[in-house]
């Protein structure tokens, strides 16, 4: 016993180092293995407030561009309104909208921190639980997909950017849904990769990639990008596909957080089915 104490006393620096290293690794692994940000992230009060101040200053320099983008979107939305359509039949019957049930609602948010040069990029937004943000809600912008909310505090939330090696979005190419997924390899921020697309699928460069209805985070048909390059290695069953992203992550400012109002129903149903399956075995 005495020898043990002497041993520990002699190498105590090493033991303390080891202890801290184990703790560090614990944080690291718990962050990496699961689809979530760890308990240390920038959606807390201090980091959030600081990022807000800096982003307020920075946003002044982008006001003009931001205004133009909003005007454009306004114009686009106006053209979708019923007033914009001319009714060219005399026997039109308008049915009251009780058959349309709202499925998605959107929360507007500002980006207060963003990065594109890491392997795991995260975005911090100025919306939190008091605005109705929850984990796993999708985030989109005018141009396309942005990411998924992974951590929420009272007034801020952290979003896993599409530019993150953990990204995994089921794609729809032009009008067809495919098994496969949009991933990011950690290199160029303009390009994502489309993985696990079977070699027999008719894929061409120039086709558009959208989010599919399989996704639990995004509405169907949100643009992800254009296919820029399709290649097939000898003997491979799957294409190597580069997708040019439609979202410009370097100048991201206004985004929308998607609330899927049916999500709980869908998840509940899936959970129930799974349970029944398990019981049947």
């Amino acid at each position: 016993m005495r020898n043990l104490f002497l041993f520990i006393q002699r190498f105590y620096v090493f033991f303390i180092f080891l202890l801290l290293l184990v703790f560090s690794f614990f944080i690291l692994v718990s962050n990496n293995l699961y689809q979530r940000a760890a308990f240390i992230n920038s959606s807390n009060r201090i980091a959030g407030e600081l990022y807000t101040v800096v982003s307020d200053v920075r946003s002044y320099f982008q006001l003009k561009k931001e205004n133009e983008a909003l005007l454009q979107e306004n114009a686009q939305l106006k053209s979708l309104m019923r007033d914009a359509y001319y009714v060219d039949t005399t026997s039109a019957v308008f049915i009251n909208d009780s058959i349309f049930k709202q499925r998605y609602s959107y929360i507007d948010a500002q980006v207060i921190n963003n990065s594109v040069d890491k392997k795991y990029n995260y975005i911090t937004l100025n919306r939190g639980t008091i605005h109705g943000v929850k984990r796993n809600q999708g985030v989109i912008c005018n141009d396309g997909v942005v990411g998924v909310v992974v951590k929420v505090s009272d007034r801020f939330c952290t979003v896993m950017s599409l530019l993150n090696r953990k990204t995994n979005i089921p794609p729809k190419i032009d009008t067809l849904m495919y098994f496969g997924s949009v991933k990011w390899d950690g290199n160029a921020f303009e390009y994502a990769q489309l993985a696990d697309i079977n070699r027999f699928a008719p894929i061409k460069a120039g086709q558009k990639v959208y989010t599919s209805g399989y996704s639990e985070h995004y509405p169907e048909g949100i643009l992800i990008g254009d296919i820029a390059e399709v290649s097939l290695k000898e003997g491979n069953n799957f294409y190597d596909i580069q997708v040019k992203l439609s979202t410009n992550f370097t100048s991201l400012h206004s985004v929308y957080i998607v609330q899927n109002l049916f999500k709980e129903q869908i998840l509940e149903l899936e959970e129930e089915t799974r349970k029944e399956d398990d019981n049947g075995k």
């Binding site: 560090s24 944080i27 240390i40 795991y120």
Partner: peptide, 24 residues
């Protein structure tokens, strides 16, 4: 020294959303 390295790393990680990278 060790504790400063660890805690300093955690603070930087908090801002970078890179939990554990800098602290290690």
């Amino acid at each position: 020294t060790l504790f400063l390295g660890f805690i300093g790393g955690l603070l930087l990680d908090m801002f970078n959303n890179s939990a554990g990278f800098n602290s290690t």
